[in-house]
């Protein structure tokens, strides 16, 4: 690794030094293509974020892909009903690695206003590995942009080798997650215990 100060000094003289990892992550982080799908009212804010006023293109994410095969990022924008949950997981499984998930809004992170209902999944993090959670009902487009920038920062520091390397560079890590089935009273399994480990509330 090159020392940060030396690098800046050299850059002033017109000598740009970089590493393969930085170059790779810089390219990936600034071209995160989201999957184009929305589930409820939060999706309207996601659409607003891609329009002229907020212009998600400034961050390289304007290319909403209609096919999971071409997408890098799944923005779970809205209420995930139990009837929809298997399809959401299936879409995620169809995305190629590296892939990331943003859970946008109260519904996607916890069930939101429908938390005590019978037909809404209480957070997509029960079935999928979520990278960024955005609270809000709905979150403003700025919050989505903030989440995107947070994700870019996360991508920027991903190591290419070593024990901390991300999932897509680790052949043993799973890239697909079990699709729940429709049961008689609930979806089965209702959550993935490998992913969903809630903190125990101490009363």
């Amino acid at each position: 690794m090159i020392e940060e100060g030396l690098k800046n000094e050299l850059a002033k003289q017109g000598v740009v030094l970089t590493t393969l990892q930085e170059l790779y992550n810089w390219g990936r982080g600034n071209s995160v293509w989201p999957l184009s799908f929305g589930l409820a009212c939060c999706a309207i804010e996601m659409m607003a974020a891609s329009m002229a006023k907020w212009d998600i293109a400034r961050f390289g994410s304007e290319v909403f892909r209609p096919s999971p095969r071409q997408a890098d990022l799944m923005i779970v924008a809205g209420t995930v009903t139990k009837k929809m949950a298997p399809q959401v997981v299936r879409l995620y499984n169809q995305m190629p690695e590296p892939k990331y998930v943003i859970a946008m809004g109260a519904c996607a992170i916890s069930g939101g206003p429908f938390k005590q209902g019978y037909n809404v999944l209480k957070g997509i993090d029960r079935l999928l590995p979520v990278d960024i959670h955005i609270p809000g009902c709905p979150p403003r487009p700025e919050a989505l942009l903030h989440a995107l920038i947070t994700l870019q920062k996360k991508i920027e520091i991903e190591a290419l080798t070593g024990p901390n390397r991300p999932r897509h560079l680790d052949a043993d890590a799973p890239s697909e997650f079990p699709v729940p089935q429709f049961g008689e009273h609930d979806i089965v399994p209702a959550m993935n215990p490998l992913l969903w480990k809630p903190t125990q509330v101490v009363r």
Partner: peptide, 16 residues
Amino acid sequence: RDHPMRKDYSEPDDYE
């Protein structure tokens, strides 16, 4: 199998 709007329906206990 259930009918959720019936008064005696009890939803799955699956929330925090």
